[in-house]
Design a protein around this nucleic acid. Structure first.
Lengths: 339, 339
DNA sequence: CAGGTCGATGTAATCGATTCCACGAGGAGG
DNA sequence: CCTCCTCGTGGAATCGATTACATCGACCTG
C-alpha cells in the first residue's frame, strides 16, 4: 500500500504539503495541488485511517451495541442508524449482544479499545460497571430503546403508554377478560415497563394481571414458546397473550400451532413491535408499532451532537396501536388498521 | 485515557517492559510482571487498538459487506459470521449495501481504509473495479452466497440445484403448468443462477418459462410486489410464482392480498431462502432452505485461513426443499415437511 | 528602500504502541 | 580468573498520518 511518503516523493513535495492538499488546507499553490492529486491518482493512494485516527484521536466511527440482530426491530434500527451516521460522515460498527450481558460487555470493551467516537447502546441489563465507568469517564454515549436509570446519558425511545392503553381497550371491547403477558427480562427497562403499563391499563378496566398470567421471557423466540406452553397448561388458560416483543410473539405462535390450536379462536395474541411479517402471519398480528427509523435517526443526531460538543437531548416519540385480526374480529368497525 | 507510558511510570519500568508483559513475551522477570500488572489494574489501562494496529499492521478485524440487512437471510448470516469470527479472535465490521453497488463500494472503500485484515462480501453486482483491484492487490477476501466470476477468490455458497429440481417436481405433481419466477438482478450470480436452474428443471418436465413469466426483481420486497402485480394483470396469469428470495416473496404476498386473492387457491407461491416467519404466514410458505449458519462459519474459516497464510478453500453446501402449504395441498402425502 | 505581512513550503515533533539492538549482571565452563 | 552466554531491561526507531513552527520569497507600504 502506498503511503503519504510515496505520494510526496512522486509529486516532488513534502508530506506536509500532501497532507494539506488532502485536508484541503487553504495555503497550497494550485501547482502543488495538481501535482499531488496526480500522484494520488497514479498511485491509487488512500490515506490510512488507522494512522490518521492515532494522530487526530478521532475515528469518525460510532459503536452500536444492539440486543439481538435476529430481531427485525433492531435490524431496522441498525439500518436507520447507519444511514443517518453515514449522512453525518460517520461509520458504524455493530455489536450483537444476543441479549447476553457478557457479550454486551465484550462488545463495549472492544469498541472502546478501538477508540470509537461515541457509543449507542440498547442495554441488555441494568448496570454493566463497564458502561457506567465509560459514561462517567465522559465517553459520548446515548441509550436507545432501553436505558439504564440514574445514568446521565440521553435516552431516545418510544413511549408505548397510550398505545398499550388503546390495546387494552381493544381487548376489553372484544370481550376478553383473562389477559396474560410474556414479559421481557426484569433487568431491562422495556422489560419492566411494558408489564407495568399493561397492568395499569388493565386496572383502569377493572382487570387484574395475576402472577400466573405473567410469564417471564427474555425477548427471544424460544422463551415465548416456553411461556405460552405454560399458559396453555393452566387449568384456566388466558384468553389473550400479549408478547412484549415480536420474537416472543413468534414463539407464542409456534406453541399455539404445535398444540393444534388457532389464533384468535382458541387464544388471542398481540405483540409489542410491529414488523412487516405481521401483515402476513396467520392471522395478521395486532401490534404496537414504534417509529423505529425515526428513533435510530434521532439517536444518531443526539450522539453526534454530544461528540461535537453540543448538548444532545433525550427524545421520546409515541408508539401507536395497529389493529389486525389476532385478537378477534371487532364487532364495531372502530380503530381498524388500513393494512 | 492512560497510555502505556503512564503504566510504565507507575510500575517503574520502561514501556518496552510493559509491552512485553502485555504480549506475554518470555523474558520478563516475575517481579516486573507483577508490578506492571498492578499498575495496569490500578490505572484501568487498556491498550489503544488504533496504535497497536498502526504498528503491527493488523487490525484483527474482518469486514462483512452484506446485500441487505433487512433480509433475514443476511441477518442470520451476519450473526453466524460474527460468532465464528469472535471464536477465532476477530471482530467484524458490517456494511449494508442495500442492494446498491454504489453503497457497496462505499463500504468496501471504507473498510479497506480502515485496514481490515480481510473482507467477506456478497456482491450486489458483477464487477466493482474497486473489489477487483483489492482482490488483485492481495487483500484476503472471500465471497459468500454470491460471487464475481473469474476472480480468484474462494466462494462459500449453497447449491440449490437439487432443491429447485425437487421444487419443480412438487409443483408439477400438484398439477401446476403455468409457472413464473421473480428473478434477482442479472448482475448477481444468484440472480441469474436461480432462473437458469429453475428453467432447466422445468424443461425436464417439458415445461417452458416464457419471458412474460420471468419478472425482473431486485431482491427487495417492493420489487416482488411490482412484479407480482404484473403477473396478475396478464390475460393468463401464472398458477405459481417462485420468488428468488424471501423479501420478494413478502412483496408477492402483499400484492396478492391487496387484490383480495388467496394463496394457494388463486395463485401459488414458493420462495428461495427459508426463514422462521414462513412457518406462520398465511399460508405457510414452501421454501428452499440454505444452511445459512454453516455458510457463515465456513466463510469465516476460509477467510481467516487466507489471512493467516493457509490456503482457504471454496465450500459449496446443498440447499433443501421445505414443503409447506403455499403451493397447494399435496394429494399424495409425499415430501411433507415436519414443520 | 527598509520593514512588515502574507502565502507556500519544509522540518520535525507527536500520537501509542511494538520490536530491534545494545548493555550490564550473573552464571557456567575452561 | 577470564571469557562467553543468557537473561532482563531500557533506548530508540518505526508505523503513517497531522500540525506547530521556521524559513524564504514576493509584494506592499510608508
Amino acid at each position: 500500500m502506498a503511503s503519504i511518503k510515496d505520494v510526496a516523493a512522486e509529486a516532488g513535495v513534502s508530506v506536509a504539503t500532501v497532507s494539506r492538499v488532502l485536508n484541503d488546507h487553504p495555503s497550497v499553490s494550485a501547482d502543488a495541488r495538481t501535482r499531488v492529486l496526480a500522484a494520488v491518482e497514479s498511485l491509487g493512494y488512500r490515506p490510512n485511517a488507522v494512522a490518521r485516527s492515532l494522530r487526530t484521536d478521532q475515528t469518525h466511527t460510532l459503536g452500536l451495541v444492539i440486543s439481538d440482530v435476529l430481531n427485525p426491530y433492531f435490524t431496522e434500527l441498525a439500518r436507520s442508524v447507519e444511514e443517518e451516521a453515514r449522512a453525518l460522515g460517520y461509520s458504524v460498527i455493530i455489536g450483537n449482544a444476543d441479549e447476553r450481558p457478557d457479550l454486551q460487555d465484550h462488545h463495549v470493551r472492544n469498541l472502546l479499545d478501538r477508540r470509537i467516537d461515541g457509543l449507542l447502546v440498547s442495554p441488555t441489563d441494568g448496570g454493566s460497571p463497564l458502561m457506567l465507568d465509560a459514561a462517567r469517564a465522559g465517553t459520548p454515549m446515548v441509550f436507545v430503546d432501553r436505558w439504564i436509570p440514574g445514568v446521565d446519558v440521553p435516552v431516545v425511545r418510544a413511549d408505548g403508554r397510550a398505545a398499550v392503553r388503546d390495546l387494552v381497550a381493544h381487548l376489553y371491547g372484544l370481550g376478553h377478560r383473562r389477559v396474560a403477558i410474556i414479559a421481557g427480562p426484569a433487568a431491562t427497562t422495556t422489560g419492566r415497563e411494558r408489564v407495568e403499563v399493561f397492568r395499569e391499563a388493565l386496572r383502569e378496566h377493572g382487570l387484574d394481571l395475576p402472577a400466573a398470567y405473567t410469564g417471564q421471557g427474555d425477548f427471544q423466540a424460544e422463551s415465548g414458546r416456553r411461556v405460552t406452553e405454560g399458559f396453555l397448561d393452566l387449568a384456566e388458560p388466558p384468553e389473550v397473550v400479549f408478547a412484549a416483543d415480536n420474537l416472543m410473539a413468534l414463539g407464542a405462535l409456534d406453541a399455539v400451532r404445535a398444540r393444534g390450536l388457532r389464533v384468535p379462536d382458541d387464544i388471542a395474541l398481540a405483540a409489542f413491535d410491529d414488523i412487516p411479517w405481521f401483515v402476513h402471519t396467520d392471522p395478521p398480528v395486532t401490534a404496537i408499532a414504534q417509529p423505529t427509523g425515526e428513533l435510530g435517526r434521532a439517536a444518531v443526531r443526539a450522539l453526534v451532537d454530544r461528540i461535537e460538543g453540543r448538548p444532545g437531548e433525550s427524545v421520546t416519540l409515541p408508539a401507536r396501536l395497529v389493529v389486525r385480526r389476532s385478537c378477534g374480529e371487532s364487532p364495531s368497525p372502530v380503530q381498524r388498521s388500513t393494512t
